[in-house]
Design a protein around this nucleic acid. Structure first.
Length: 203
DNA sequence: CTTTGGATCGTCT
DNA sequence: GACGATCCAAAGG
């Protein structure tokens, strides 16, 4: 229960990613449950921004765990990752979808004020860029400490455990290493994005 | 319902 | 100079 400790984030992203499922992201009034994530493993992962070493853009990924790595892409979108693994290793978990629980009005106005479109609750924070819009996460939040909450963002545990058998599939929107089964989601949850086809575990 | 193409710019080659 | 860890609207079945 409560805010997660730094030690929680020291794990390898493949271990940590499924453990982040069902945790809460909190920023002020805004509270949502994480239902979909992806693991990225730095120099060992052709799809990772850090595959070819450190740059100014990805530097936060190499730093201490328990921070946010926020990046800009497609000329208009922000996406956010939880930095994990030990200090010096470029490891991170991309936050891909959240089930809105509280502060829904604030999430909606945050999206709309940034030119977003809110069709329904399901699409409010479904997808990494929409999630950032809903939480007003942008470049200013790159490097934010999600344990101390120095920028007002924390990840907490409300007692709901991660799924015993999370859904697993390839990661979305990448070309390299598309077959790595490093996307994890809460099976059956409607707030999970659907691409690629949800592949049940056990298989 | 699915498919397709446009928007838009910081970062790396 | 090319291209994204994406989203959205419009067009087609």
């Amino acid at each position: 229960m409560g805010v997660l400790d730094y030690s929680f984030y020291e794990a390898d992203p493949i271990e940590l990613a499924p453990l982040l499922l069902n945790k809460l992201i909190v920023r002020g009034e805004r509270v949502g449950r994480i239902v979909e994530v992806e693991a990225y493993r730095g120099e060992e992962d052709p799809a990772s921004h850090a595959f070819r070493g450190m740059t100014t853009r990805n530097a936060v990924m190499f730093g201490p765990p328990g921070r946010l790595y926020v990046y800009f892409t497609y000329g208009m979108h922000w996406c956010s990752n939880v930095v994990c693994g030990q200090d010096g290793l470029a490891r991170a978990v991309l936050l891909r979808a959240v089930e809105p629980l509280e502060g829904i009005a604030q999430m909606e106005s945050a999206r709309i004020s940034k030119g977003g479109v809110v069709r329904n609750l399901r699409e409010l924070a479904r997808g990494p860029a929409r999630l950032c819009q809903a939480y007003s996460i942008d470049g200013d939040d790159n490097g934010a400490d999600i344990v101390s909450g120095d920028r007002g963002i924390v990840i907490t545990d409300d007692g709901v455990p991660p799924p015993k058998k999370p859904g697993v599939s390839g990661r979305v929107g990448i070309k390299d290493a598309a077959d790595y089964p490093w996307r994890f989601f809460v099976s059956g949850n409607t707030y999970v994005s659907s691409t690629p086809a949800n592949v049940p575990r056990s298989a």
